[in-house]
Design a protein around this nucleic acid. Structure first.
Lengths: 326, 326
DNA sequence: AGTGTTATGTCAAACGTTCGTCATTTTTAT
DNA sequence: ATAAAAATGACGAACGTTTGACATAACACT
């Protein structure tokens, strides 16, 4: 059997109360007793039962982290950073891959409630507003509007869209398309599209929109991209994520189009993976370190004080990372 | 305040005992009462408090999943699959990025114990054996020896090493190097190295070993690779992971070496990311779907019956995925 | 010796469930 | 009508910990 508080007490030759006091650093304690107790805890490999503690009203120090899928490099990197920051603050992460499925997201939410998490960081894309309101829990959202009292952390998607389009234009492109995911309300790609449109307007160029649903398989995406490139004579494409940009480049190669000579390409996200392994790709870098720090720090503020008022929206600056594809 | 079992009981007009019986489907229950209770639960958005339940000896249905870093695409994909499989069985994942740091790994282990997890899936690389034994908990390991009673799931690294080397050789390479991580005992890359060596022996070729520590930054790795390629006239390189293979290809490009004409390259892992976005790369594909299913299924068996005996080692077959780099 | 501070102990209630025991009521089958 | 089966209820102990109330002991300082 696992050792309990009482076993520690016996071994240390003190009362259970004293052990609890030592653990919680509560009331008067002599150094000698503390030492004895810690020693006994070590000897028995005692770990206080968190279930019992949080039944007592203590925090669980569990945080739910919901993203569509951490096998996507962007979310993988983001969640990895979030987990590290939280662990450093003695919080644990319950991982939720919502797969952009509203039903799964709902189940996750219920599960997280049942597990008494202290808070949630959500970057999922599907649920209606109400569902997030009914749980009176600290929540911070990444890049997505959930509800009025849920602060959003995001990067400046419009600015990113402008920068990307500008890069294409300044590299000489004149007929510039944008490839985005489906544009449901609240989706982050909307901002990118707006920035694209805004820049083209000032440059007096015509926008060309193409939707390539995020959840499609890469093979299907490639087919679609091929059709699009064949049917049009674009000389520049702004892809609203880096992976699509890689596909576009692959398709261009298949079509014997030289990048950047015949076709210029700019991606979006700029994860470490892309910067390290595809330095050629010109892309818009989201400040992942800042984003994760802000998400965590806001959440911890909300946990410490549920009433503390936070901005409804924190928008972090993005930057262009020049490769050679535009 | 969150609704409790008693609130449900009141609303449904039954006793607390009955509500508990309904939740646990225990004893005689009429359909009518069940309906009433479920209705009340729904109305109140009631979620049983898992802390209280597991204090009662119920399972927590929490699983600790320890890998070095999910921002690495291989681990990201593996952990994503594991999480999905576990969630489908109503288990939740506590995510642990050990960063290959023994101290962090130790802290994670203690934290998981404190949180009463039902089991652990570990793919980390650092801890001594003893530490995993002292907790009498179901554990399954990925690709790494932890302790005699911890089953290992891995792919056939030796076979992978042989296949990779064979591919290089059959593509015409004669002077074939291997780039691996540091070879501490129990590391999966050892098997790959052995396969490499074994194949070269039968082909009567000389092995050339180079260590490129896994934890180095990509920039540092590239520098090292460049030095190695400049100092030797290899015409084939087997990289023990795909990302290093990408770096090697990038370096080759810098050195004006044509791949595969001047230099053939084979990677290792074959994640969906690589297959989708780098179909050119010849690589050894680890069967991630089978691996994750096996990891989860073995763990659940051990949880269901701590005494059930499992093989000490499950080795799944790998396969060569032909690209054009070898 | 007296006072105040610091250190420890005993005891018990509380957290939200589960589950066994026992009792009672309702339903069903004969 | 009667017995057996099915359905519910009331009650309370237990899970491992925290915490407050209260008591008492040890110690330092005048």
């Amino acid at each position: 059997m696992k050792p309990k508080l009482n076993d520690v007490a016996k071994l240390a030759g003190v009362s259970a109360t004293t052990v609890s006091r030592v653990i919680n650093n509560h009331g008067y304690l002599s150094q000698k007793t503390k030492d004895k107790v810690f020693e006994a805890m070590r000897e028995l490999h005692y770990q206080p039962n968190n279930m019992a503690r949080s039944l007592q009203g203590k925090k669980t120090r569990l945080i739910g982290v919901i993203f569509s899928d951490i096998s996507h490099p962007f979310f993988g990197e983001l969640v990895s950073r979030i987990e590290k920051l939280l662990f450093a603050q003695n919080y644990k992460v319950i991982l939720c891959n919502s797969a952009d499925d509203p039903q799964k997201e709902r189940e996750y939410l219920q599960m997280l409630m049942a597990n008494q998490v202290d808070g949630i960081i959500a970057g999922a894309h599907n649920l209606g507003i109400e569902e997030y309101q009914q749980y009176g829990l600290p929540i911070i959202s990444f890049d997505r509007y959930l509800s009025d009292n849920v602060p959003i952390v995001s990067s400046d998607n419009q600015q990113g869209g402008r920068l990307a389009t500008q890069a294409l234009h300044q590299a000489g492109a004149q007929k510039i398309a944008i490839f985005t995911g489906k544009n449901h309300a609240g989706s982050p790609t909307n901002g990118r599209r707006e920035g694209y449109e805004a820049y083209l307007k000032t440059a007096q160029l015509t926008p060309h929109f193409h939707e390539i649903p995020f959840e499609w398989s890469p093979a299907l995406k490639m087919m679609t991209i091929k059709k699009i490139l064949v049917a049009n004579d674009y000389d520049g494409v702004f892809c609203s994520d880096d992976l699509t940009a890689l596909l576009t480049i692959n398709v261009a190669k298949q079509l014997q189009l030289s990048v950047p000579d015949d076709l210029k390409v700019v991606g979006y996200d700029g994860t470490a993976l892309i910067r390290n392994y595809h330095p050629d790709l010109t892309t818009i870098e989201q400040p992942l370190a800042d984003i994760s720090e802000l998400l965590v720090s806001l959440l911890l503020q909300r946990i410490a004080d549920a009433e503390c008022d936070l901005e409804p929206m924190y928008q972090l600056p993005v930057k262009l990372v020049k490769g050679i594809t535009a």
